[in-house]
Design a binder for these strands. Structure first.
Length: 812
RNA sequence: GCCGCGGUGGCGGAAUUGGUAGACGCGUUGGACUUAAAAUCCAAUGAUAGCGAUAUCGUGGGAGUUCGAUUCUCCCCCGCGGCACCA
């Protein structure tokens, strides 16, 4: 033992080449086997190379895929590159090379790293979002969206990142900061391409019921879409109408004033002469505030009276109209009816500016509360009071009745609002898919005919982003100037490009048929492979890529391209790997672990095994090099075991029943745990097996048939080592083609058990007995135990609880 | 503030139709081998008391249900993630 026979540097490349040569992991398009499409989010090939976090999720799905193949499934486990985007563009600018070249170099590096880990991808299906043969279809999908009116151009204030020099989608702004670089975003008025994701808002919520996603993923998406049911109500201000949205139309009798957002178009029209200077000052101030300032100062609400009055359609009373920036222009109608008695924000505002507060809902649970107690709000459901024909109803009854009343009197209607905004789809950068639209002086906006796709990115020297918000493509005359597809006259191309999320919004489809040049993928192949059976990716993509791609899939389903309503059947998420110091791995902390170094030092199988063993797959976990070294020690032991077995010429030794049963249990557990993504306990089951097989410096060996079983159950986790030791025992069949072993349930059931003996629920002894022992017999044996006798001395047994196969408990 | 998840040794974690808490790994301590070290192997390792058998305590805190609670119920504390002036 301990002679360093295990040399991963030698055996790992050997088996990797063998797999590549035999195309061992090629997924069959026409197979009688049941298919499984296993997908992990494809990486952005950055200059930094692979992260140990990539290794974690890729290995987990690799382990899973390898198990499924041995269990007789036709598995598609593909890999590709999501390569458009800013980091590459910035890197290329800095190093004065073309993004095309940088991407090629980075992909090469990533691919080499992935191969060194022995991941069982079907490399024949590799895709790259920046290759024209791929983005041709990204552009094609855009044209289909355009045809259906789901892609439209719109001028509006958008989030602008001054550091990245581009507009951003709402999903890309976190706490007022750019998701990528952390810079404070600004508002910029720009004409933008938009995708109507809001059209799919309801279906994106409802169809979550049909898929198996982690609950927190569903909750986050539902939250983000933010559906609320309520009513729109029209208020009259003199001869003008203003619409408000409310989720509490039942409180309309308590609406004591209206508030318009500073951007509301009616503000300038209704403002009175006296109030005009004050209102204008306020609008100026609001304009200067960033979104962040507006939301961070939420405790201190500000506003100003317009001098105008509206009529509450329910009470017919005149109520003042205010302007305040706690009302957002972008939600609902940018105007609200304010019910200070039953809304915290309205309450704060009314208190500050001494506005009327009128209670219209009684809290049935709190009878103590006086009707005239106006120190706090009640925002729950209760009984309606002070509300004419609504009085006495419950909140939900009142909602229904007032909506009917509003509709009958043409004052409003039931309606639904969403927090979700349409997807801002234009970016002012070079390294993205050109948007296939041209502008003709005569014909206006004209989509590029499908047969002219792809519109390829021109390869140029200078592609730096501008500060003006104009795309760098605008400076490239050969690209911009074109002819109108309709009238053949002079025309200019759209120069904005698509966001980096475009290519990933349909990429899984392409894996089913990656070389197709007539359609994004053939019907037949999509019908066979889709939907994706298992999809793993990061939680950070829940309201970005995951939502966008569900939207595109639904659209493609609607126009008859893809066969399934949802793209992914099941979605799981891996936890992050932190540095050993418990902080995030980052260059600035100098605590980044490079997987290449770990493969070099410990071998790929050790790294794989460790990342599976380190903790539950979905949990955040700190790195531990000592833990990795422990896994290497385990594999040394495993290798030596099989090596010694070979040396001893397949001798058989006497094996106890326990060891025979243990093997059965281990086969069962490893298979079940991998299927349940409990990789850590699968590894520990293997460790337990080997601990038991060892007696000092000697080993217990199983029969050749059982030894092979051990190699097979090691294979998903440590495929190189398993293949090597398999070759000691079997020359004809390849390990990656054998069947996963059956286990013997009967043997497991026959096993002797430890029967627990308790007195008053406290453990006093354990008995090793047959699993099917009877109560009377167990009682007899238990009462012979010294410790039990001592506890029972001088006491009366009141009750005996016997749980077959588990315990016997004496109550005294 | 709202929603979701979690809190178990020195550390990562195991165990929940309620039934041996701490599997497995790391670390630590002692021992074997060695001139020595590394590696390897053996043993111990939740806390307290005891030479020991053993006893008591112990899964964030408090209460409850139960013969028996890490697991179920109620209240509270802490941590993480998401949303957040969305009417």
């Amino acid at each position: 033992m301990g002679n360093y026979k295990y040399n991963p540097k030698e055996i790992e490349p050997k088996w990797q080449q063998c797999w590549e040569k035999h195309q061992s992991f090629k997924a069959e398009d026409n197979s009688l086997k049941e298919k499984k499409f296993i997908l992990v989010e494809f990486p952005y090939p950055s200059g930094a190379g692979l992260h140990v976090g990539h290794v974690r999720s890729y290995t987990a799905l690799d382990v899973y895929s390898r198990l499924l193949r041995l269990q007789g499934f036709n598995v598609l486990y593909p890999m590709g590159w999501d390569a458009f985007g800013l980091p590459t563009e910035n890197y290329a600018i800095k190093h004065k090379i073309k993004p095309q070249q940088a991407t090629k170099d980075n992909i090469e590096k990533f691919k080499k790293q992935l191969k060194s880990l022995g991941l069982s991808y079907d490399w024949s299906r590799e895709i790259n979002t920046t290759s024209p043969s791929y983005y041709k279809w990204t552009q094609w999908i855009f044209l289909q969206l355009y045809k259906k009116g789901l892609a439209y151009k719109h001028k509006m204030p958008i989030n602008w990142c001054p550091s990245c020099k581009t507009g951003l989608a709402n999903e890309e702004v976190i706490d007022g900061k750019c998701e990528r670089c952390g810079a404070q975003t600004e508002k910029k008025e720009k004409e933008q391409w938009m995708l109507k994701i809001t059209e799919y808002a309801d279906r994106l919520i409802e169809d979550l019921e049909t898929v198996d996603f982690l609950e927190k993923i569903k909750m986050q998406q539902i939250n983000w879409i933010g559906r609320s049911e309520g009513a729109e109500i029209t208020f009259n201000i003199e001869d003008k109408e203003v619409k408000v949205f409310t989720t509490r139309p039942d409180t309309i009798f308590g609406a004591t004033y209206l508030v318009l957002a500073p951007e509301h178009e009616l503000v300038s029209e209704i403002v009175s002469k006296e109030q005009k200077p004050a209102v204008e000052d306020y609008l100026d101030l609001a304009r200067k505030k960033s979104d962040l300032e507006r939301t961070q100062l939420q405790k201190d609400k500000t506003g100003v009276f317009t001098g105008a009055y509206a009529v509450n359609p329910a009470t017919k009373e005149k109520i003042p109209v205010w302007v305040a920036d706690y009302v957002l222009a972008s939600y609902g109608f940018g105007a609200i009816m304010s019910v200070p008695a039953h809304d915290d924000r309205d309450f704060d505002f009314a208190k500050k500016y001494n506005l009327a507060i009128k209670e219209v809902v009684k809290d049935l649970k709190d009878s103590q509360k006086q009707d005239d107690d106006l120190d706090s709000t009640f925002t729950g459901e209760g009984e309606v009071i002070n509300s004419d024909f609504l009085t006495g109803l419950t909140t939900s009854q009142a909602k229904a009745k007032i909506i009917t009343w509003l509709e009958e009197n043409n004052l409003g209607k039931k309606t639904v609002n969403y927090k979700l905004r349409d997807w801002i789809f234009s970016r002012q950068h070079y390294w993205g898919e050109p948007i296939p639209i041209v502008y003709c002086k005569k014909c206006g906006e004209v989509p590029v005919p499908e047969e002219n796709l792809p519109i390829t990115l021109p390869e140029v020297e200078n592609y730096e982003p501008t500060d003006t918000g104009e795309s760098p493509l605008a400076k490239i005359a050969s690209f911009v100037n074109t002819v109108c597809p309709k009238c053949q006259g002079e025309a200019k191309r759209e120069t904005d490009t698509m966001p980096n999320w475009a290519g990933s919004s349909w990429y899984w489809l392409r894996y089913t048929d990656p070389q197709n040049d007539r359609s994004l993928a053939s019907k037949e192949k999509m019908n066979y492979w889709l939907p994706v059976d298992l999809y793993n990716g990061g939680m950070e993509h829940t309201t970005l890529h995951l939502l966008y791609s569900r939207f595109w899939n639904k659209f493609l389903y609607d126009i008859g391209i893809v066969p399934s309503l949802e793209p992914y059947k099941k979605r799981i998420s891996h936890g992050m790997i932190l540095a050993e110091d418990g902080r995030k791995m980052s260059k600035s902390f100098g605590n980044v672990i490079n997987p290449d170094d770990m493969v070099e030092k410990y071998g790929a199988d050790s790294l794989r095994l460790f990342e599976m063993f380190v903790g539950p797959f979905s949990e955040t976990i700190p790195w531990s090099e000592q833990g990795l070294s422990g896994c290497r020690k385990f594999l040394d032991k495993v290798f030596n075991y099989f090596y010694d077995f070979r040396e001893t010429a397949f001798s058989e030794s006497d094996l106890s029943e326990e060891l025979l049963t243990l093997l059965q249990k281990t086969v069962k557990k490893v298979g079940e745990d991998i299927k349940a993504f409990k990789f850590n306990t699968a590894v520990s089951a293997l460790m337990i097996l080997f601990n038991e097989l060892k007696q000092g410096d000697n080993w217990y060996f199983y029969s050749l048939k059982d030894m092979k079983k051990i190699a097979i159950i090691l294979y998903p986790l440590a495929p190189h080592l398993a293949s090597e030791v398999w070759s000691f025992m079997e020359k004809d069949n390849k390990l990656e083609k054998v069947a996963w072993p059956q286990y013997d349930d009967k043997l497991i059931a026959q096993e002797k058990i430890n029967l627990i003996v308790q007195v008053n629920g406290k453990l006093r002894a354990t008995l090793t007995v047959e699993g099917d022992i009877e109560e009377s017999q167990a009682k007899q044996l238990a009462l012979k135990e010294e410790a039990v006798k001592r506890q029972l001395e001088g006491k009366e047994i009141k009750k005996v609880i016997f749980v077959p196969g588990r315990l016997i408990n004496f109550v005294v």
